[in-house]
Design a protein around this nucleic acid. Structure first.
Lengths: 160, 160
DNA sequence: CGTGAAATAAAAGAGCC
DNA sequence: GGCTCTTTTATTTCACG
């Protein structure tokens, strides 16, 4: 598999593309202090080797009618592989769930759920999440205000 | 402020750009069943009126040495405006914090923290988070496995 | 909203340092 | 590995139906 050598310029490229994913190669090259050709080569390598996973438009949730975000901790009954896997598969497939992690701490899983309003969240909980028989406990933390979201990853540890 | 009218085509545009933020206008137009001119007009409007907030490259955390994500619940001492605001400002400014929400539930705030490893997380906790005098309690849920992250928002509620 | 033409810009490649 | 220059390709933009 690909090597893990990222130099300072690679980091600057990724930082720049995190901030603006639609930067043209020419503008990008200028920002990172390179000429277009090697810059493009590097970008392609970062894409090909999986450092850059995708490019996305970031929508503003409130504006698109999705002003209701909930952070949900879930405890399950059993960690037997097959049942847990079925749970994971089911939750992963739910479009309202925009993030889903197996965690170590007070709960077993962490979900970020995005819906239009409280009623839709109730609906989601009752008809989808609590339908899964393995679910033992659900802790809902409703977002009242989003102070930061989708922020760029901190690349400082690699000499950006 | 801008109107809130999004028709089915606007939704399809946003859905397509969520999936691939680097789509050219021509490809985008084709996907949503429009010719390039009106398509570009719509995209510009969506950007101008704040439906589309930004375009970002999505990096794969493991590959860039940020394989350690923690979901942190924080309780604070007082909700007096000035102290809470100072806390919010300080946390928002921390680059390791990629998401930060005021919530209603078991804790007051929710943070998503991204660092290279456990040691860096300890460092973050001790030297940054616990330094803030208003913090009363911190609950760390360490991500063992990420099953879903940064998923596109579900736009189904608007006839996408 | 669609079409088409014109201007512009970007990507890709060859050869060289 | 990087730079410049050229070629080719595609995208944006605009005026008009």
């Amino acid at each position: 598999m690909p090597k893990n050598d990222l130099d300072a310029i690679d980091c600057r490229i990724m930082a720049a593309l995190q901030a603006d994913g639609r930067l043209s190669n020419i503008d990008l090259a200028e920002r990172v202090g390179l000429s277009p050709s090697p810059c493009l080569r590097r970008v392609k390598r970062l894409e090909r080797e999986g450092y850059i996973d995708a490019y996305r438009a970031v929508l503003q949730r409130d504006r698109v009618g999705l002003g209701f975000s909930v952070f949900v901790g879930v405890k399950i009954e059993s960690h037997a592989n097959d049942r847990a896997l079925a749970f994971e598969k089911a939750v992963t497939a739910m479009p309202e769930v925009v993030a889903f992690h197996l965690v170590s701490g007070e709960v077993d899983y962490f979900l970020e759920v995005v819906v239009p309003d409280l009623e839709r969240y109730r609906e989601f909980m009752v008809t989808k999440l609590l339908e899964l028989p393995i679910v033992r406990e659900v802790r809902s933390n409703i977002a009242i205000q989003t102070l930061k979201a989708g922020a760029p990853l901190p690349l400082g540890h690699l000499g950006a």
